[in-house]
Nucleic acid binder design. Sequence first.
DNA 1: CGTCGGAGAGAGCACTGCTCTCTGTTGTGA
DNA 2: TCACAACAGAGAGCAGTGCTCTCTCCGACG
Lengths: 226, 226
Amino acid sequence: MAELLAAARARLESDGSAELSLRAVARDLGMASSAVYRYVESRDALLTLLIIEAYDSVGAAAEAAAEARESGADPAGTWLEVARAVRRWALAQPYSFELIYGTPVRGYRAPEDTVQSALRMWGVIVGVVMAAYGDGSLTPAGPAFDPARRIAPEVYAFVGWTDPAAVPPELARTAARSATLFTSLVGAISAELFGHLHRVADDYALLFDVTIATAAAGVGLHVTLD
Amino acid sequence: MAELLAAARARLESDGSAELSLRAVARDLGMASSAVYRYVESRDALLTLLIIEAYDSVGAAAEAAAEARESGADPAGTWLEVARAVRRWALAQPYSFELIYGTPVRGYRAPEDTVQSALRMWGVIVGVVMAAYGDGSLTPAGPAFDPARRIAPEVYAFVGWTDPAAVPPELARTAARSATLFTSLVGAISAELFGHLHRVADDYALLFDVTIATAAAGVGLHVTLD
DNA sequence: CGTCGGAGAGAGCACTGCTCTCTGTTGTGA
DNA sequence: TCACAACAGAGAGCAGTGCTCTCTCCGACG
């Protein structure tokens, strides 16, 4: 089973998810394609396993980048480091990034198994924003609005606010704005990997930092670029 | 040829790009699959045609939304309307959105034919930001940085600055920050369509507005939400 | 009226996911 | 030690795919 996953991962990283053929993986393992079905129900099930792996891998990379900062470091700088770490991860294994943040695969309907792993990224984002909110380095910016119904109650529970009604409005607005951090992070990497920055920028790393810092400014996090 | 494109478009909208089978299109047209090759070189070439169509379609939707605003309307509000129009377009034909902003298809390597159509979206974005910069409604925000090498010279030429060295630094910074508008727009719609907001928000339309307005705030555009 | 070109048909190749049946091996209990 | 059962893998086969090759037909044009 471990060998099967390893072989599938290797195929994914070299050919991409659309070309991931169960028969090719079987050939790599030196066995008949039908034998693979002893271990995995279908091609989509194999892909789901790789999806969970990828979510955990990128989640771990983001968490590691956040934890590498000494406590007391400014949260805005931490966010930039997290974003850069996710970008490095994506560039190192672009097909894994595509697998989770690109077009969903055919018969795949996001079983509950993947949700937990997928939420690790949101955990890091919310953690950074809450740290900034707590230490006063976050100066609320961005649009004003009634925060009701903008984000799901689970998000508040995620950071320990059991009663959504008790959340201070400005904190609730900040939480809703935080989605922009996720959106611009995934969007920036997608744009780069999928070729949408062609003719727009030459040095993608430089523009990436600007994009992350600009989105952060909208939330109230002040990232310093060197 | 027109019938072929129409049939392919119908297949795309009902099944998605990965399932777009040339043989199925041929069946819809009541002819043999081999006959289709008289008109189109390969499956990828057919997809490329659909990609150009999609780029033009979404570009036209964005341009129409921008032009629908009377001249003199605040550019920030115009940007919100453009973003909403693009979201509506994406929700109405999700597979077309996936086709251009999701994972690139296999053998596709973005021929020059598509670049011109793809740049229409950037044209709208730059137009809005430049309008705001011009009428004084844009109050520079976001990170400070040396604008050199952040964006390609073509972008300046795009808005009429033939000599990149003559562009005022703050304008250059604003231009670089504008990429965040594209990134967060595509990222927000992708996140919604691809299921990444599961458990994060219930009312996607409300969160979308916040995301767009937050990213705009980072650029210096102040969107008012009702 | 003859010729010629283009449009379409059909067979066929190599590939895919998946199912079915068959074989060999291996472990376990009496 | 022997019998049985469970399991891992092999192989054939089905329906589908993209694409190529050859063949036929029909209509336009000189």
